[in-house]
């Protein structure tokens, strides 16, 4: 494992912890898209089907369990916790899951490294992760009020994606035959989706102002 991959995993972990911390301590999920969180739960559930069959390292298994556990607990908090669920912006968070799920599934059935149940679902999880942030970005655009924790959550997610790209570049040059077009293209697309958000995030940070997206 190289430093970029590790930094990517750590910022990913930090993003999830920031979100859980916000929900658990403030008992509020205002500004957080349940649609995005449910998509992430699907992403991890379909990607980590190999969790009990293929052992890579203790680190990998542990992180998989953390991402599965945290994504499902966030969904549980937002749907079922009697206080947290009241702060959910249900009327604003109207993005439809299946607009993203169905095309990703069809695409994964056409484009994959091997047409098997696990490979197709693994590819589906990559495509879905690439677009899963969209409901969250739409919600931010609509409500326009972004508290610090929600802003940090999205910033950390974007940082995670950026580190993964550096990791792929590093591995491409250091490991023979390391070529994986599907995750690279999906990952690049995903990172680009954060571009706009990053621009406003740095802008507000530089001017020491509260993060606000344009209408």
């Amino acid at each position: 494992m190289n430093i970029f991959r590790f930094a990517g995993d750590m910022t990913h972990l930090a993003s999830v912890l920031v979100l859980l911390l916000k929900i658990h301590t403030i008992k509020s999920c205002a500004g957080v898209s349940l649609k995005t969180q449910e998509l992430y739960a699907i992403v991890f559930a379909t990607r980590y089907l190999d969790i009990f069959t293929d052992f890579i390292s203790l680190y990998n298994t542990f992180m998989k369990l953390v991402f599965l556990g945290s994504s499902f607990s966030i969904v549980w908090y937002m749907r079922s916790h009697k206080i947290v669920r009241r702060s959910y912006d249900k009327d604003q968070d109207t993005f439809r899951h299946y607009f993203l799920i169905v095309p990703c599934l069809l695409l994964a059935m056409i484009i994959n490294e091997k047409f098997t149940f696990r490979e197709v679902l693994w590819t589906f999880s990559l495509f879905l992760e690439a677009v899963a942030i969209l409901p969250q970005l739409v919600l931010l655009q609509r409500t326009r009020n972004i508290d610090n924790l929600t802003g940090q959550y999205i910033f950390l997610l974007g940082a995670y994606r950026a580190f993964y790209i550096f990791n792929w570049i590093y591995r491409y040059f250091t490991e023979p035959h390391y070529v994986h077009w599907i995750p690279w293209i999906a990952g690049l697309l995903q990172t680009l989706l954060y571009g706009d958000f990053f621009y406003y995030y740095f802008h507000s940070w530089k001017n020491n102002k509260k993060l606000q997206l344009p209408a």
Binding site: R47, D50, T53, N60, M63, T116, E119, W122, P183
Partner: peptide
């Protein structure tokens, strides 16, 4: 399940 390709990233 068939053996999967090597997916060592998260």
């Amino acid at each position: 399940f068939e053996t999967s390709l090597d997916h060592d990233e998260l």
